[in-house]
């Protein structure tokens, strides 16, 4: 009796996550996959085949955009790590009590407004008639207005900005768990600051680094708003391409195939990243 009741409780508690996974993740993907392997041969006439995937490989624009998206996302992830690590180290190791909470909150404040508003903020700063351009003119460093929007650097700034919190949070958590006496022991045994960073702090923070990188990479890869708004209409981002296929071209079949390719790409990069850093997914996700 009792075990029946507890089993019922178990399934009831499991139900929301199961529903979430099945209804919102697995079913749509099955649907998308079926759509992606349908070839349109005439009005309302479909045949099963991999032509949509073949179209991706034969059209250079598609796979070049795909590669560009991947490389820029990896680059954005690396940049976020380089910028986020010192911030996280400062918050976790060099501050205490109230200051720590305040700094942590300050990292989160930008996320209280919508991504759209934040991105428009960058546009106000970077555009030709924007703050930076006017300031440079005022200083006399440039003669005329400078356009800083609509290039890859602007996209990169936006990507790093939107995702840095997701790097800082897991890093602060793992660095917080590093006992200060380990760092002191490192100094005591004659280690320099760089040696301690390399041999003690970074190995300890590795699970946080990897989980932060995974999240930031996925966010950048799947970001739609930032590349479109900051990169302008010439900027090619793979999510934009998927959107075009679905909405503008009404080519759901090709769009679905693109969607699956993006899924394969992100899985592949995450897998490669884990292998390279010698971490396992369960360990990484379990610790942070």
């Amino acid at each position: 009796m009792k075990s029946d009741a507890s089993r019922l409780g178990f399934y009831l508690l499991l139900a929301p996550i199961l529903l979430w996974l099945v209804v919102l993740i697995i079913l749509p993907h099955i649907g998308l996959f079926i759509v992606s392997i349908s070839e349109k041969i005439g009005p309302r006439e479909y045949e099963t085949g991999f032509d949509n995937y073949a179209a991706f490989f034969t059209e250079p624009l598609y796979w070049r955009t795909f590669a560009r998206t991947a490389i820029m996302s990896i680059f954005a992830t690396a940049l976020t790590l380089i910028l986020g690590f010192p911030i996280a180290y400062y918050i976790a190791k060099l501050t205490r009590g109230r200051t720590k909470t305040t700094l942590f909150l300050m990292c989160m404040i930008p996320f209280w407004v919508s991504e759209l508003v934040r991105t428009f903020g960058w546009m106000i700063l970077l555009r030709e008639t924007g703050v930076f351009s006017n300031f440079l003119q005022y200083l006399g460093l440039v003669d005329g207005p400078v356009e800083m929007l609509y290039n890859d650097a602007a996209i990169m700034v936006g990507l790093v900005y939107t995702s840095i919190l997701f790097m800082v949070v897991p890093l602060v958590t793992t660095l917080d768990s590093l006992d200060d006496s380990l760092i002191e022991a490192g100094y005591d045994l004659g280690g320099t600051s760089t040696a301690i960073m390399r041999e003690i702090v970074i190995p300890h923070a590795m699970p946080g680094i990897v989980s932060g990188c995974i999240v930031v990479f996925m966010l950048s890869l799947g970001n739609y708003l930032t590349p479109i708004l900051l990169g302008g209409k010439d900027s090619l981002w793979f999510t934009g391409m998927i959107y075009t296929q679905f909405i503008t071209r009404f080519n759901w079949e090709l769009g679905s195939a693109f969607g699956f390719l993006l899924l394969a790409l992100s899985s592949l990069v995450v897998f490669a990243g884990l292998k390279l850093s010698g971490q396992s997914l369960s360990e990484t996700m379990g610790r942070s």
Binding site: D179, S181, L182, E184, A185, G186, Y187, D188, L189, G190, G191, T192, E199, I200, P203, H204
Partner: peptide, 19 residues
């Protein structure tokens, strides 16, 4: 501390768990 000819055994030993 890293230039002094002293070494310290810490209260909780502070052995490096990653090594």
């Amino acid at each position: 501390p890293n230039k002094r000819p002293v070494s310290m055994v810490f209260q909780h030993l502070a052995l490096f768990p990653t090594m």
